[in-house]
Amino acid sequence: MSMTILTWSLMAAQFMLAIAMVCACLRMFRGPRAQDRVLAMDSLYLNGMGLMLVFGIVSGSTLYFEAALVIALLGFVSTVALAKFLMRGEAIE
């Protein structure tokens, strides 16, 4: 019984994280200015990281954890670079 609950709640969690990614994509395409798009991309990769972790629970392998770690690292660097670009007009000085 409890395993049925776990299975269905994992499916629901994947569905909700997918909806969150769709919302972030909507803001990225619609966002009136560049900073809205950068914010939406930041939110998009965080949601993708959560989806990776849920995939890891569903498939029972710790392989997805490393993918989530790489997404977190690269996403941080890219958002900082884009914020610096919006501020100064160049990413590396």
Binding site: L17, I19, A20, M21, C23, A24, R27, N47, G50
Partner: peptide, 8 residues
Amino acid sequence: TMIGAIGL
């Protein structure tokens, strides 16, 4: 996470 994205 979904509530945050809807707020976005």
